[in-house]
């Protein structure tokens, strides 16, 4: 594979040719523990990047920090060249950086289609005064619904359209959350463990969706424990351990890296290495 990602050699914190996110000196302390301590990190634009590491490596905390859901002790980062450190989470989302959650946040007492519609941004009917006059937002609502139905079909949730999200299976909720995130056509989508709990029959199509996103020009960053998935779809892999970035590189290279294996072994003898081996 020709190198169109990295400037120079792949190393932890290395420069990218076309980064969409650039973060420096990001730290977050819990009690006396540094949960995140990232010196430098760049996410390549238009690629699928996997963020892996043992439990407690700080992956989700990093997600929370980058998307404004948590406040860092120190750190600066930019998205599409603009500084977004300290920007509230909803503003981050409006700029096109949309995330999903490890513990799925489907809105259970709302129907699937309502969940989807909520994902669309800049809706006129979401203003208080215009909400009272349906002629102001009926047309927009129809367009949003059309997009939503398209996405539901792609994620094979169209049969569940009118069901309450709470009645879906865990995997279906994951899919719904991802589909909902796509409603706003984000330039970067950040998926926190998208495969966890998803029915194996669905995984293949989910992988295709993610690849399809890349083809559509969306950058993908995801946290995952399933090494098979990581190897299969990612263009780039970033490894975290104990809050730090310990390795970076193309999937095949990184997974042979001794530092990576050590990082996993150091924290977990069992699960992660097992799936890694299975992946090979």
């Amino acid at each position: 594979m020709p190198n169109d990602i990295v400037v120079g050699k792949a190393a932890p914190g290395c420069k990218k040719i076309d980064p969409i996110v650039v973060a420096s000196n990001v730290t977050r302390q819990f009690g006396g523990n540094l949960a995140v301590n990232v010196e430098h990190l760049e996410i390549p634009r238009g690629k699928i990047t996997a963020l892996i590491g043992p439990n407690g490596a700080g992956k989700t905390t990093l997600f929370n920090l980058l998307t404004g859901f948590d406040k860092p002790n120190t750190g600066e980062w930019t998205f599409e060249g603009k500084n977004i450190a300290g920007v509230s989470s909803y503003k981050v989302a409006r700029r096109g950086m949309i995330r999903t959650f490890q513990l799925t946040k489907s809105l259970n007492a709302m129907t699937v289609i309502e969940n989807m519609r909520l994902g669309a941004q800049k809706q006129r009917g979401e203003g208080f005064f215009s909400s009272l006059f349906s002629f102001l937002w009926k047309g927009e609502e129809a367009r949003i619904t059309e997009t939503a139905d398209d996405l539901l079909k792609r994620f094979k949730l169209d049969a569940k359209r009118e069901d309450y999200a709470g009645s879906l299976s865990g995997g279906q909720r994951k899919l719904l959350e991802m589909a909902r995130a796509l409603m706003s056509k984000p330039s970067l989508i950040m998926l926190d463990e998208p495969m966890a709990g998803v029915n194996p029959a669905l995984t293949q199509s989910l992988l295709e969706h993610i690849k399809g996103l890349k083809a559509g020009g969306t950058t993908v960053l995801f946290v995952e424990h399933d090494m098979h998935m990581v190897r299969h779809i990612s263009d780039w892999v970033i490894v975290m351990a104990e809050g730090k970035v310990v390795a970076e590189g193309e999937p095949n290279v990184v997974m042979k890296d001794q530092a990576v294996i050590d990082a996993y072994l150091g924290a977990h003898h069992d699960t992660d290495l097992g799936t890694m081996k299975k992946g090979k």
Partner: peptide, 30 residues
């Protein structure tokens, strides 16, 4: 009035907040 508000997209955001405000935040709503 409440009926008009709650059937609209505005009401949808409200119900979303009731269910999970972080989820609604992650979708770009203030």
């Amino acid at each position: 009035l409440v009926w008009l508000m709650m059937r609209s997209p505005w009401g949808r955001v409200m119900k979303g907040i009731r269910e999970d405000e972080d989820a609604v935040r992650s979708l770009g709503k203030n």
